[in-house]
Nucleic acid binder design. Structure first.
Length: 228
DNA sequence: CCCTGATTCGC
DNA sequence: GCGAATCAGG
């Protein structure tokens, strides 16, 4: 993937909008978080609250691949004097995002201390801005439904891995069947490099046996007869 | 552990 | 210029 004008635009907007490098990378696709950060810096976009404070320039310089590059060129190394760290003091941005209007009820503009509304941005394919809190045309809050049913996960569904809980590092093996009230996913930490945990990898991946020597197949995760 | 951004440096 | 590797704090 190359940094086209458009992708740079997306990067810039999202970076300035407060999206994390990971989110930006995910949105752009084809690039890593590091690539995003690197590009952002090359674009001169930096200056964002970093978890890493300016480290002492006098010691603990990064040596890195000194071992890999044996005395090739000990060029004058600038331990990088982080003269940056400008001062976003005006807007330190503390609150992550209280996800407004979740209740569906038009809420009074809560007297947010500091009056610093958290920026909420969303980007569509191509990087256009879908919505911004400070925009002149905030979306009209939808009429609240007659009855707000609190999303109360049943006690037994708590702790269960739902579809939305799936990510790169939990086992996606389905437990039960879709549509059933207690359908969920295994959720155990995956066998690295696989979409399933070790146990379910054993079920998902089986050695190909010669014809005639096939074992009766194990129950299929989907499509098989329901056995309960 | 997970996440974050910053920095370096081989390519 | 690019981005993986690495660092370092939360």
């Amino acid at each position: 993937m190359s940094w086209t004008e458009e992708r740079i635009g997306t990067l810039t907007k999202m970076w300035e909008g407060g999206s994390t490098a990971s989110q930006i990378a995910e949105q752009l696709g084809g690039v890593s978080r590091n690539a995003v950060i690197g590009k952002a810096h090359r674009l001169g976009l930096k200056a964002r609250p970093s978890p890493v404070k300016a480290k002492d320039t006098k010691k603990a310089p990064a040596k890195k691949k000194a071992a890999a590059a044996p005395a090739a060129k000990p060029a004058a190394r600038k331990p990088a004097a982080p003269a940056r760290q400008a001062a976003p003091a005006a807007a330190p941005s503390a609150a992550p995002t209280p996800s407004p209007a979740q209740s569906g009820i038009p809420s009074q503009p809560m007297p947010n201390k500091q009056n610093d509304l958290p920026k909420i941005v969303s980007y569509g394919p191509g990087g256009f801005l879908r919505q911004g809190p400070g925009d002149q045309q905030p979306p009209i809050p939808p009429a609240p439904p007659r009855r707000l049913v609190p999303a109360k996960p049943s006690p037994e569904m708590a702790e269960k891995t739902s579809l939305l809980d799936l990510n790169e590092r939990v086992c996606r093996w389905p437990m039960g069947h879709p549509g059933e009230p207690d359908f969920h996913f295994c959720g155990v930490k995956v066998n690295p490099g696989f979409p399933y945990c070790v146990e379910h990898c054993g079920r998902a991946y089986q050695a190909q046996l010669p014809r005639g020597a096939r074992r009766p197949p194990p129950p299929l995760p989907f499509g098989g007869p329901r056995v309960r």
